[in-house]
Design a protein around this nucleic acid. Structure first.
Lengths: 195, 195
DNA sequence: ACCTGAACACCGTTCAAGT
DNA sequence: ACCTGAACACCGTTCAAGT
């Protein structure tokens, strides 16, 4: 399953690293639609070199996201040891939000990767789905989460919230409110003894 | 407030209508990023003509959305006469979802228009916000909706759900599940006597 | 007053030539 | 084996020339 990639020539490795660093900066500053030409220029390489290393924008994105993905997995580990399954689920979704906000506009390619088996982002999507599955099942088992909800739906809802959150900062709303909305919904039972 | 636009020359009016019809078709078929060049060609006009009538993509979009917007307002009227304020709020949000699914990708420019006072879509955004305000307030007054929720947040959440819904059709999830998730949240109180 | 379509700009992507 | 950068393609946008 694991491919043994032959080691790169020294200059190729150097170029790859430069591209990766520059891409991370540009994606962070201008969002995931940052110009690939600019990234190549910023890294001091020809555009062809960028394409040789990363044949698609998604491939470059995926490589650039590696650190964030590791943090996400670490957060999952941390959530696992929480006593309360509902708290664990919430902590996991919080971490997922943080990950999805790594770059402006990231939710879109991630959503696209869910159906595209091919995408370099697809692997991380499957991982996220299975982790969501795990935390959700635990919460459901104890009656803390909605029964007729599947991991996929919850992942999608998280993507949705992350998508608006990207734009929302300058908009008077806070992410906490949106996270809260996702957790509890906008409806309340007629008897206001709930909260 | 209402501007008196001088009547168009006959051929100009004809071109405008053609552009509008063609644009509606293309937006419906390929989403809101449909090529403007293609639309001009399809309408049998030069690209300059398209830009003369609709200086920005958003202007064309807004004009194309007029019918859907009228349907949305009609749905609001219909929701007003519902007895139960929670049902009215749900009906309104359902209609809003339908509107936002008029074209694939519509949520993005609508979201952008919320902060851009300039955008041709901004007027409809204000209308939507004030209607959401109204339905939400009614539901809150009777204890049916979360107190610490503002219309803006709810609008944003609706946009978020519509955004995923655009892509979701071929994805095994249903829009109902997402709407439900927004209404009730993913969490359940420890005592499973709720549902 | 309005229309046309060539011209320009921008950017992603490829590939022949070079090391 | 890898890199460079010119060349091509595509599309949005403008504007001089035409009716």
């Amino acid at each position: 399953m694991v491919q043994d990639v032959p080691p790169l020539r020294a200059d190729a490795q150097r170029n790859r690293d430069r591209i990766l660093n520059t891409a991370a900066q540009h994606f962070a500053a201008r969002g995931i639609d940052a110009s690939l030409e600019d990234i190549a220029k910023g890294a001091g390489v020809g555009s062809g070199t960028l394409y040789r290393h990363f044949p698609t924008r998604d491939a470059l994105l995926a490589a650039t996201l590696r650190k964030s993905q590791e943090q996400l997995l670490a957060a999952a580990e941390a959530a696992r040891v929480l006593h309360h399954p509902a708290a664990a689920l919430q902590a996991w979704l919080k971490a997922l939000q943080t990950y999805l906000r790594t770059f402006n506009g990231l939710p879109a390619p991630v959503l696209a990767a869910i159906k595209e088996e091919q995408s370099p982002l697809a692997v991380s999507c499957q991982k996220v789905t299975s982790l969501t599955e795990e935390f959700l099942a635990q919460a459901q088992k104890n009656g803390h989460a909605c029964e007729r909800l599947c991991a996929n739906d919850l992942f999608l809802a998280a993507l949705a919230m992350a998508w608006v959150a990207n734009h929302v900062d300058a908009l008077g709303s806070s992410c906490e409110t949106l996270d809260d909305l996702l957790a509890h919904g906008y409806l309340r039972s007629p008897c206001p003894t709930q909260d």
